[in-house]
């Protein structure tokens, strides 16, 4: 009976999430791969982890997921705090800051390119002053990628974090203030720990959406290294090597899972001990 009740939900998940993942996993092991003979093999994984090109690709994928997440957290948290207060022009600001939400990633990438590239708008504006922008597009540290992804992610994060902060009851803040905590101490010791679930969720979502990013790193990223997402495209579309592409997809998913679990562990333990420093 219970199984029957669970069937629609569980069936949906199995059909649309479990099945493709299982097929990709089998394909990565050489079973049922498109355009190749079906034979069990570990060679795609061996190739992935022994080739320095792909190993750099994995590391770069992690880098362009983590860095934008950290940068956008650093911007979105103060922004979310500012949105709690009332200030002149807040309504207009509350609309404007959400614009990146509706701009597709590829458009964001072109915006960054037009603004920050050598010969772009900013560098032309700085030219009369004899100043030159550092290399921000296709640079080794993928600054352009980080700018574009953070630009996309900040409003999304700020929206979630502002929502989480707004659920902290005003009485708790007032209680902290009357007990001798200043604004900053109240934020750090009361609001932030209580909003942590929302902040965690926002960070996770941004991180996960960044791991598979394709348009932004292919337009703004360095020539080398390239993230796994781009290698996947190359292998599947140009080399017709679906087995290797599937292995990359599985590794990408696994990396995301590992980091999510680690982050979750970390934040829950911080949350638990948030009030424990007086012991």
């Amino acid at each position: 009976m219970l199984l029957m009740l669970l069937a629609p939900g569980a069936g949906y998940l199995l059909l649309f999430f479990g099945l493709p993942l299982a097929l990709a996993f089998l394909s990565s092991l050489g079973i049922g791969t498109i355009g190749a003979d079906s034979a069990f093999t570990f060679r795609h994984y061996v190739e992935l982890f022994t080739s320095s090109v792909y190993r750099d690709g994995i590391a770069f994928s992690v880098y362009i997921s983590l860095a934008p997440t950290i940068v956008s957290l650093a911007i979105a948290i103060p922004l979310a705090v500012a949105l709690q207060a009332s200030f002149p022009g807040k309504r207009l600001f509350a609309v404007l800051y959400k614009i990146p939400l509706v701009v597709p990633a590829i458009v964001a990438a072109f915006v960054v390119m037009i603004l920050f590239d050598r010969g772009g708008m900013l560098s032309r504006m700085l030219l009369p002053f004899g100043l030159q922008l550092p290399k921000l597009v296709r640079d080794d540290f993928a600054i352009g990628v980080i700018i574009a992804m953070a630009w996309k992610a900040v409003p999304f994060m700020a929206l979630i974090i502002a929502g989480a902060l707004a659920t902290v009851p005003g009485d708790l803040k007032a209680a902290a203030r009357t007990l001798g905590a200043g604004r900053l101490a109240t934020f750090l010791r009361v609001e932030l720990p209580l909003a942590l679930p929302g902040i965690t969720a926002a960070a996770l979502l941004v991180f996960v959406s960044s791991t598979g990013a394709f348009a932004v790193p292919s337009l703004l990223g360095p020539i080398y290294p390239r993230p796994l997402s781009i290698w996947m495209y190359e292998e599947a579309m140009h080399e017709n090597n679906w087995g290797l592409a599937s292995a990359m997809g599985i590794v990408l998913s696994a990396v995301a899972c590992v980091i999510l679990v680690a982050y979750y562990r970390l934040t829950t333990s911080v949350h638990r001990s948030a009030g424990g420093e007086a012991r």
Binding site: P169, L172, A174, A175, A176, V190, P193, A274, G275, R279
Partner: peptide, 11 residues
């Protein structure tokens, strides 16, 4: 208005 993330001692 007790702090829910703190023990009674810490509150």
């Amino acid at each position: 208005a007790l702090f829910p993330h703190m023990t009674l001692f810490d509150n």
